[in-house]
Amino acid sequence: MLQLPESPCMRKLVSVEDAYELCRQITAKYSKTFYLGTLLMNQQKRRAIWAIYVWCRRTDELVDGPAAEFTTPETLELWEKQLEALFAFQPLEDPDVALVDTIQRFGLDIQPFRDMIAGQQMDLYRSRYETFEDLNLYCYRVAGTVGLMSTTVMGVDSRCNTASWSQQKIPDPTPEAVTLGIANQLTNILRDVGEDARRGRIYLPLAELASFDYTEQDLFKGVIDERWRELMRFQIRRTQEYYRQAEKGIGYLAPDARWPVLASLMLYSQILLEIERNDYDVFKKRAYVSGFKKLRYLPMAWLRSQVL
C-alpha cells in the first residue's frame, strides 16, 4: 500500500532546477513525441509541462505500472492527500519540487488533478465500457484533464483580453483543450488494443463491437477481418473529428504556444494513419511515428500556426 513519504524536513529534497531536470529526463524517456513538442515552447512553459507530465505519469502508473497489482482504493486516497500537500506548497518527493514551483508560477487549479485520480479509480473496478458515453467520461478524467492543466500554462492570446468594450464573448480555449486530451486518449486506446487485451481489458465500447458483429472473443484472439477493419475505420474517423474540433481552439492560445500545441496535435494524430498502414493490426504491431516523419511535420505545423 502507498504510504505518504517522509516529511521534507526529515529528508532533503533536490533543488528546483534539479527537479525540473529530473522531470525533463522522465518526459524524454517515456513520451518521445510529446517531449519533442515541448521543446518548441519557451523554457518556463516547457518546464511546467514536464512537471505536469511527470505527475500524470506517476498517477497512471499506480494503476498501470509495475506495482499496479498492489494498488487499492486506499492507495489512491493517499495519493490524493499527497496532491493536497503539493497545493499547500509542501513537496514530499523530488519531482514534487518542480510541480509545486509550477503551481505557484501559474496558479494551477487542483480539480483537474483530482479528476485524473478519479479516472484511475475507474480502472481499479472497470475493465469494460458498454457505451461511448461511458468511455468518454473515462477519457476526460485520465486525459481531458491534462488539457485543463496545460491550458493554464499555455495561456490565452492577450489581445482577447483587451476587448472589454466589445460585446463579443472572449474566446475560451479550454473546451478544445479537453477535446484534444480526449483525442489523444482515444488514439492511445486504438494503438494499445492488443496490449490492453493481454491484461484482460477492453476499452472499445462493447455496444460498438456488437454493432459490427465483432465479439470479445474475436478481440482476445486478435481476429483481423473486414468486421474489424470497419470497426477500426469507424473509431479512427471519430477520433480524427475530435482532433479537428480541438484544432479550432489553438488560435485562442498565446502566440508562443500555438506552434508546439499544433505540432503535438499533428504528430500524435499521425498514429492513426500508422494504424491504417498496418492494416489495423494493433494486436501484433505497435503503431508509431518515426523520427524522420516527426521532423518533417514540424515546419508544416509552424506554417499552419502562423495563420491561426
Rank of each mutant, 00 (worst) to 15 (best):
A207K: 12
E226I: 14
V54Y: 05
F87P: 02
T152M: 11
L40N: 02
E226L: 15
R199A: 10
V14A: 14
L108Y: 01
D60S: 08
P8N: 11
T75K: 14
F106A: 01
S127Q: 15
L2P: 04
F132Q: 05
C160I: 12
E208P: 05
W50T: 02
G291Y: 12
L13I: 05
Q25L: 12
R24W: 15
K29C: 11
Y242R: 15
N188F: 03
S269N: 09
F292K: 09
D218R: 09
V142N: 08
S31M: 03
R47K: 08
Y30W: 12
R24C: 10
I250E: 00
T38E: 10
I182W: 07
I189S: 04
L209F: 02
L22R: 09
L22A: 09
D64L: 06
W228P: 02
S211W: 10
T72A: 06
L76C: 14
L108V: 01
Y140M: 10
Y243V: 00
E133Y: 14
G291D: 10
E241Y: 07
F212C: 03
L13Q: 01
A48M: 13
F212N: 01
R46D: 00
W55C: 01
F34K: 00
T71E: 05
I271R: 03
M266P: 09
D64F: 07
S264H: 07
P8Q: 11
M122H: 08
R114Y: 09
L83C: 02
N278M: 07
V100A: 11
P66H: 14
R237S: 13
E216I: 08
M122A: 06
D64T: 09
D172N: 09
T187V: 08
M1C: 11
L219W: 02
N161G: 09
D96V: 06
M41C: 14
V307N: 08
P91W: 05
E130Y: 13
V97H: 11
E74F: 12
T187A: 09
D94L: 04
L124S: 03
N184Y: 14
Y214C: 03
L22C: 04
I250R: 06
L262T: 11
R198I: 08
F89Y: 15
L267G: 11
T131K: 00
T187E: 01
T71Y: 07
L4F: 05
N136I: 13
L39Y: 13
Q90M: 03
L62M: 14
Y129R: 00
Q167P: 12
E133I: 05
A257H: 01
L92N: 08
W302A: 11
G37V: 06
G37P: 11
Y252N: 09
W50G: 00
I110M: 13
K81W: 02
G119T: 14
L186K: 08
Q240E: 15
D64Q: 06
F89D: 13
L295S: 04
P173H: 11
M266E: 11
I26Y: 08
D213S: 14
L62Q: 10
S264I: 05
Q44R: 15
R126F: 07
R141M: 07
G147C: 05
M232K: 00
Q120T: 04
Q167C: 13
D109Q: 15
F34G: 01
I275E: 03
N136F: 15
L4E: 08
C56H: 03
L308W: 05
Y35E: 00
I110G: 13
A51Y: 06
M122D: 05
A210H: 04
D157Y: 01
